[in-house]
Design a protein around this nucleic acid. Structure first.
Lengths: 338, 338
DNA sequence: TTCTGGCACTCGTGCCCGGTGAGTGCCAGG
DNA sequence: CCTGGCACTCACCGGGCACGAGTGCCAGAA
């Protein structure tokens, strides 16, 4: 087990490296941190830390930099979550309060998070899986064409065009709408299939085809849209790390464009509490040089989606985690209000 | 006026430079292009072209590179639009045909365009300004709360929450919906305000407040959503230009995140025909090292929105213009069908 | 046992410097 | 008006060299 001081040395190394972005040596360490021991002692500690794989040197006669494993230890044991200052909190609230609809909330959140952390922000739209149905609307567009509109409790609206096999009267359609709504409003998406299963039977023979196809379109929409959408912002922040350019930035930009990858990434994060994935802990290869800080947010006590940031492994973890958590909290509040 | 051969020399310089990304000299030119004259002659021509500001040398004893003015001449006089190969055309169609809704169409278009041109693609959502109303729906959510849903002929759906000053019966609401739709369906957004102006008067005193607020919300939505949205893709392609890294890429990424800037950019493009803005012709400073190729697209004969690509001034203009035009055409078709 | 100061060693970085070659401008002659 | 020749410029490349940050090890002190 590592002694108290060695952990302290690791913490100092991480802090200095994050600040300066340069390998940190024993002498600089003793000067900037009151460790109470000489550089020589620190050197011994560093050698031990290197043996254990927490730090590494890019080349002989250079200082040490933390490894992924080192950051992991730092995050787990050494770093707290740095709370935001109250002006910052106020700024968040003010910024988010002006949102007019869901797109706007998500858009503002992304910008806010990118600005606060100075990193790439990723915000998932509130998930439909855990959402409930607020309303289903059926609009006759032509004699044999109906538009299906699904409204969720998170304010999301999805629409689908349905071509009917046989024309349907407005009355039948209104009937279907009424019955459909009485069954599914307020219910969770997952429960809907069962709830509407027997609905076609209660209609006249001639309308059954249409009813069936409307229902199956509804179910399709529920499933399809469970593949969530997300919004990204702050990619310009990637250019702050000119060092490993462009070897690093390219695969990251590519990964960011593949929303599927990001959704999987967020999906892997714990539902509650904060998840930090460091460097190679990320399954996707393009993100092996980055860390992901993600957290769930929701309108109630339950998380309906996740948000987070993607940045270099050498990030300010306490600060980033603080910002991510705070933003998630406020977004949750905003969603609960609307 | 420049002689025929000098124009030919400029064309050769542009082509070579776009291909190699390196300053091109007189000797290389005569070797790669059958100009029929010696390097010395080409040198004289190049000196003349430099005097006129069409080309420049980064430093003495280096080859020449085209200036913005040079590219401008190239695009205006020397370059045609390179049509796509028929396999490419088929690929476009296949790729776009699978789209299920508007978001999907736009998303696919962006990916397609980015892939074809290997540059950053920007696609504006079909504009509401020129759109017509397909349907307006009013859904009672609570006793004094109504959801307003607006559906456009381009398949876009917008929703707004309306808090009523006084409760309204479902019958009155249905009445309002019916009257509203009979007036505005099929009409252009711009005409709607006039068409609904006198509507509140025809309602009972107790409902007028609600009717008014519903109408004003509708008008607000029309105006607000005229500020268009857009989608961006292919930012990873920016890393292909490692040369001017990261001095160039940073402001570009920043500009791309400011959708307002991009919308203005697209707005400046001509409604019909293709617009090419080269380097400093772009008002936004961050885009001074890039060129923008934009074109309008639409479901009918009229353009409802624009799409285009952003790339380095040293881009393959004929190829890019060909791809942009082809994609715009197919997207127009897809929209017309749905 | 643990810490400390000293010391030799490594090696990346920055700098100077000369050679090379691509490219130019100019000029005299066809 | 074109061409070949020629002198000149200058970015680029590679080698050599000094510098210094940082290390590992060791003997002695606490």
């Amino acid at each position: 087990m590592l002694s108290e001081r060695r952990l302290e040395v690791l913490r100092a190394i991480v802090q200095d490296y994050v600040g300066t972005e340069e390998p940190v040596g024993s002498k600089a360490l003793t000067e900037r941190h009151r460790l109470g021991v000489s550089p020589a002692t620190v050197r011994n500690d560093m050698a031990a830390l290197e043996d254990e794989g927490f730090i590494a040197q890019p080349h002989t006669s250079a200082g040490r930099i933390p490894t992924d494993k080192g950051y992991r230890l730092f995050v787990d044991k050494l770093a707290g979550v740095k709370p935001l200052s109250s002006p910052e909190r106020r700024a968040i609230q003010n910024f988010l309060d002006g949102a007019v609809d869901l797109d706007d909330v998500v858009g503002r959140t992304v910008r806010l998070l990118a600005q606060l952390t100075r990193q790439v922000a990723v915000v998932q739209y509130p998930s439909l899986t855990r959402s409930t149905v607020r309303h289903v609307e059926l609009l006759p567009l032509a004699t044999a064409r109906v538009m299906l509109v699904l409204i969720t409790d998170t304010g999301r609206v999805e629409q689908r065009m349905v071509d009917c096999p046989t024309p349907i009267t407005e009355d039948s359609l209104a009937d279907l709408r009424a019955r459909l709504n009485s069954r599914v409003v307020g219910r969770r998406f997952a429960d809907v299939p069962q709830l509407v299963q027997d609905l076609p039977e209660s209609f006249e023979q001639e309308d059954r085809g249409t009813v069936s196809i409307v229902l199956s379109t509804l179910l399709e929409t529920l499933v399809e849209e469970t593949e969530e959408r997300l919004m990204i912002g702050g990619t310009a922040n990637l250019t702050r790390f000119v060092h490993d350019f462009p070897l690093t930035i390219r695969p990251v930009l590519e990964a960011l464009e593949e929303h599927v990858v990001l959704l999987k990434l967020l999906g892997e994060a714990k539902d509650s509490g904060m998840t930090v994935r460091i460097g190679h802990e990320n399954a996707h290869e393009g993100l092996n040089a980055t860390s992901v800080v993600a957290v769930g947010y929701g309108s109630g006590d339950e998380a309906v989606a996740k948000l987070g940031v993607v940045g270099p492994t050498r990030m300010d973890y306490p600060g980033t985690m603080g910002a991510v958590r705070a933003v998630a909290r406020y977004v949750g509040q905003i969603l609960a209000e609307s």
